[in-house]
């Protein structure tokens, strides 16, 4: 089953002829993802390893159904590209680009909601349904199929934790990156809801960080609606208030978004919270 994407998900890559876009499109192809086209204005008609390149999203849509779009578009142009995909009726938009202006991010998310599209990101590593499909930038060899759902705000920390899970033979159903920006599309709650309903997922790892109130909302949801066990790791315990820790969203402002507040809320909801990333597999074994 997995959530959000599987082996049948048809994907276009926007920004397919740039360095990053091309490299990762081919990595996704190698992973088994169904890439039905790349978008690159002015490059329509060419092919990259048999993947047709189109000038516009609608041109690609004339040739194939599209379930998801993955954006490798430079920040100044990302809003236009995201609107193009959403307006074309694509229902899952994965925005890898970082440093998108806040106002543009806000507009993208609002437009997606209006059109019933789901957004991962901006500033996400993407999503992987192990052994089925990968949309985004994580290295292909990190993931093995299994019963653990993972949802996270940060990329490399997720690799660290998934790496620990894989070393301990704990495979992953789907690994979802929400994105590190201040305003992002899907939230922890949206993804937890899907994991709760997914028959392939038996337990969930939530990788959070300081800033915002997503983890607190997740705790509330877990307490009231979830039957499956959740293990969490929250980064940023040592972060000083008022400083952005790399991610635009990772900042303690006006006493809100603290590590302590998040951990307390999660623990009250029955979630086991790991002190260190390598403790996660042990905690998962206990609850499985």
């Amino acid at each position: 089953m997995a959530i959000l994407i599987n082996e049948e998900t048809r994907v276009i890559v926007q920004g397919a002829t740039g360095n990053q876009g091309k490299f990762h499109m081919l990595q996704m192809l190698a992973y088994g993802t169904q890439i039905v086209g790349g978008i690159s204005p002015g490059k329509g008609g060419m092919k990259i390893e048999n993947i047709p390149i189109y000038d516009t999203v609608l041109a690609a849509k004339e040739e194939s159904e599209i379930d998801a779009a993955c954006l490798f578009i430079p920040a100044p142009f990302a809003k236009d590209a995201a609107f193009e995909a959403i307006d074309a009726g694509i229902k899952l938009i994965i925005i890898i680009t970082e440093h998108i202006p806040l106002n543009d991010g806000i507009d993208i998310i609002a437009f997606a909601r209006q059109k019933g599209a789901k957004v991962l990101g901006p500033n996400t590593f993407g999503i992987v349904s192990s052994g089925k499909s990968k949309i985004g930038i994580p290295p292909n060899n990190f993931f093995i199929p299994g019963p653990i759902g993972v949802v996270a705000r940060s990329g490399t920390l997720t690799y660290e934790i998934v790496g620990n899970l894989t070393d301990n033979k704990l495979g992953q159903s789907t690994v979802v990156g929400l994105g590190g920006d201040r305003v992002v599309g899907l939230s922890f709650v949206d993804v937890l809801e899907k994991f709760e309903a997914d028959e392939d997922t038996e337990a969930i790892v939530l990788v959070g960080e300081i800033g915002g109130d997503q983890e607190e909302s997740a705790a509330n949801y877990i307490k009231n609606h979830m039957t499956k066990p959740v293990v969490a790791y929250i980064a940023g315990k040592s972060a000083p208030p008022g400083k952005r820790m790399g991610h635009a969203g990772a900042i303690i402002e006006r006493g809100k978004g603290t590590y302590e507040g998040k951990v307390k809320a999660l623990q009250m909801a029955g979630v086991s919270v790991a002190n260190l990333p390598f403790e996660v597999p042990g905690l998962i074994r206990k609850v499985l």
Partner: peptide, 9 residues
């Protein structure tokens, strides 16, 4: 990475 750097601290 921001997350892993925080995790390291």
């Amino acid at each position: 990475g921001a997350g892993i750097t925080m995790g390291t601290l």
